[in-house]
Structures are given as C-alpha cells and as structure tokens.
C-alpha cells in the first residue's frame, strides 16, 4: 500500500494524518485515502477531481505528471506527498 502524507499547512485547516491507501494510480490511492472525508478531499482536488492549481503532489520524490486525471502509476511502497505550491502565495 502507498503512504499519503500531507503538508502541515493543510493540517492547520483539517485533520490530515498520514494514511495508507491502495490503488494503481494516484487518483485511486487518493480516492481511498480521502474516503469518508470529502472536505479534506476538497482542499487538495477541485470538484472536477483536478489537482488544485496551487497544490503540488509528489510521487516518490517527483511531481506527478497528470494533474488533470492523476493517472500516474503508483507502486506498492510508493510515498505520496501533498504540499502547498509556493505559487499560491
């Protein structure tokens, strides 16, 4: 299972502990990670499921390529970091 970790800036607004989740893509892993907390999901993704403009998602140390559909493939021991982008002020 992959591990999702959230920036402390997000934790200021919502409880967002690190979570283990399964899935073949970033979209699938995040969907499981956000299960039961649609509000937390809304801080990272917009209502169309796209990564928010000023949020960055790193997969095993690199920015994900597909910010629209989050189709980047995830390995069984991958680490996903959800961070605020400095572009957002």
């Amino acid at each position: 299972m992959a591990t999702i970790r959230f920036t402390s800036h997000l934790v200021r607004h919502r409880p967002a502990p690190a979570v283990m989740a399964a899935g073949a893509t970033v979209a699938e892993v995040l969907a499981q990670g956000f299960e039961g907390d649609d509000l937390l999901r809304s801080y990272v993704l917009d209502e169309q499921g796209r990564v928010r403009k000023h949020v960055n998602i790193y997969l095993d140390g690199a920015l994900i390529h597909d910010r629209l559909r989050l189709s980047d493939p995830v390995g069984p021991a991958s680490e996903i970091y959800v961070l605020q982008a400095l572009s957002g002020g």
């Binding site: 997000l10 801080y43 917009d46 928010r52 000023h54 949020v55 605020q84 957002g88 002020g89």
Partner: peptide, 8 residues
C-alpha cells in the same frame, strides 16, 4: 479563499 486550498 485559501490561496492553496481553494474556497471554503
């Protein structure tokens, strides 16, 4: 309107 995390 959070600059990073959208409208709440």
């Amino acid at each position: 309107y959070h600059g990073h995390f959208g409208c709440k």
